[in-house]
């Protein structure tokens, strides 16, 4: 089975702080991590390989620094890693990112492609489904359990609003995964050694056949017009007194707001 896992390197948003004076992000010292849900995607790829055999290729599109994320995936057990990196990709939105990923995936060849449900920086959850559309293959989102996978058939549980669906698909297929699916493994010693030695292939736009008009800012239909900090709320109230008094005060407030 040819398994491709798409991973993204993201700033750890838990560490992102706002400068209260300028109202802007303080990026200093914020570590880069593999998007947390992509860790589950890697784990899913490794488990499929362990079960039915095959090869796991991790790919990422991003700046040269993203190489470290790919090495981490190799340390976990991925067989091969490709970094799609090129100046012309800068400023790519989900359309341009998905297009580039799909072109790289075509070049490698895949039976199953695994993405995280969403990335914590952009939070769009769009790259998986868009990539599937460019590849003209089916996709299944929010996979929380893989019930069965064979040469040309997969059966999974897809989390929905009020329960889950059991969904079957032919292969090749793209799935996006949620945290519930598995527990990502830690790198083994052997894996860490392999990661040190691994050659991370680097592909440019030309290598995957993406023209300038379809890449980066030029190829992106959306643009960020501006960013601003959300308005601080100034309606905060810590209630006081005995528990009984606090609860009474709360009930009064809620009645005043017509919430009760």
């Amino acid at each position: 089975m040819r398994i491709i896992v798409c991973i993204k390197q993201v700033p750890d948003t838990a560490e992102v702080r706002i400068n209260p004076e300028t109202g802007t992000l303080i990026r200093e010292g914020v570590p880069s991590i593999i998007n947390p849900l992509d860790m589950h995607a890697i784990e899913a790829g490794l488990q499929i390989k362990e079960k039915i055999g095959g090869k796991v290729t991790v790919i990422s599109m991003g700046p040269p620094q993203a190489e470290s994320a790919l090495r981490e995936a190799v340390a976990m057990g991925a067989d091969e890693a490709v970094l799609i990196t090129d100046k012309t990709f800068a400023g790519s939105d989900t359309w341009a990112t998905s297009y580039a990923l799909s072109m790289a995936i075509k070049k490698i060849g895949a039976d199953i492609i695994i993405c995280g449900k969403q990335a914590i920086d952009g939070d769009t959850a769009q790259v998986g489904p868009e990539t599937a559309e460019f590849l003209n293959i089916p996709h299944i989102s929010y996979v929380r359990k893989i019930e069965n996978i064979e040469k040309d058939l997969i059966k999974v549980q897809r989390l929905m609003d009020e329960g889950y669906d059991i969904v079957e698909s032919s292969l090749p297929v793209l799935i996006t995964v949620i945290k519930e699916l598995n527990e990502p493994r830690l790198p083994s010693l052997k894996g860490k050694m392999a990661a040190k030695k691994a050659v991370i292939q680097k592909w440019s736009a030309q290598d995957i056949g993406v023209s300038e008009n379809d890449a980066g800012i030029k190829g992106s239909p959306t643009q960020v017009k501006n960013v601003f900090t959300p308005q601080a709320r100034n309606d905060r109230k810590i209630l006081e007194g005995t528990p009984e008094q606090q609860v009474d005060a709360l009930i009064m407030e809620l009645r005043g707001l017509k919430c009760l």
Partner: peptide
């Protein structure tokens, strides 16, 4: 965006 730390205006 960025975990709710900032808001962004996007246009197409």
């Amino acid at each position: 965006a960025f975990g709710g730390n900032i808001m962004a205006t996007i246009v197409c």
